[in-house]
Amino acid sequence: MPAKSQAQQKAAGAALAAKRGDMPKSKLKGASRSMAESMSEEELDKMASTPRKGKPQHAGKG
């Protein structure tokens, strides 16, 4: 599933780094923490590797 916004992509990247052991899970907050707990490494990799060009900073509601 590709990221819908730059913020979502950044959160997925942080969660992926924690899942791989590159950063401690205790440093995660909010969305990145829940992503790390609920998504597989493969899902996080797909979301984090989405191109940023043309993505809004934050996804709109709705």
Rank of each mutant, 00 (worst) to 15 (best):
E42I: 00
A17I: 13
G62I: 12
L16N: 04
P56H: 08
G54R: 14
G60L: 08
G13K: 13
A48R: 14
K10D: 00
A12I: 01
L28D: 01
S38F: 00
K55T: 05
A14T: 06
R52T: 15
K25Y: 07
L16S: 03
P2M: 08
A18K: 04
Q57W: 11
P24C: 10
R33K: 12
Q57K: 14
M39G: 06
A12K: 05
K27E: 14
M39A: 10
G30P: 01
M1W: 02
T50M: 05
M35Q: 10
E43S: 09
P51F: 07
G13F: 08
S5L: 15
E43L: 02
E42R: 01
K61A: 11
A31W: 07
S40R: 06
E43V: 01
S34H: 01
K10S: 02
A7M: 12
R52P: 15
L44M: 02
M35D: 09
K46D: 13
A18D: 11
A12C: 09
Q57S: 12
S40N: 08
K25Q: 14
M1Q: 05
R20I: 10
S34V: 03
K4C: 02
L16A: 04
S26R: 08
E43M: 07
A14D: 15
A7C: 11
A7K: 14
S34N: 03
G60C: 05
K61V: 08
S38C: 00
E37N: 15
R52L: 14
G54M: 12
M39D: 10
H58Y: 08
G54P: 14
S5M: 15
S32E: 13
Q8P: 09
S26P: 05
D22S: 14
G13Y: 09
K29S: 15
A36Q: 10
M47F: 00
A36H: 04
L16V: 03
A59M: 07
A12H: 07
S49V: 06
S40I: 05
Q8M: 10
S32P: 10
K10H: 02
M47R: 02
L44R: 03
S38Y: 00
L44S: 03
A18L: 13
G30E: 00
K46M: 11
A11K: 01
S38G: 02
P56G: 10
M23Q: 10
S26A: 11
A18W: 07
E42S: 00
A17S: 15
A31K: 11
L44P: 07
D45Y: 05
M47Q: 00
R33M: 06
G13L: 12
A14P: 14
L28A: 04
M39L: 13
Q8Y: 01
G54L: 12
L16P: 06
M35Y: 14
D22M: 13
M47E: 00
R20V: 04
A31P: 06
K53V: 07
M1I: 02
M1A: 06
R33Q: 09
S40L: 07
K61I: 09
E42F: 00
H58D: 06
H58G: 01
Q9P: 09
S5F: 15
G60F: 03
A12Q: 09
M35H: 06
Q8H: 05
K46W: 01
S40M: 07
P51Q: 08
M1C: 03
K61Q: 12
K4N: 04
K53F: 04
T50V: 06
S40T: 14
A15R: 00
P24D: 08
M23N: 04
G13A: 14
G30K: 00
A36C: 11
K53M: 06
K27F: 13
D45F: 05
Q6F: 01
S26V: 07
K61N: 12
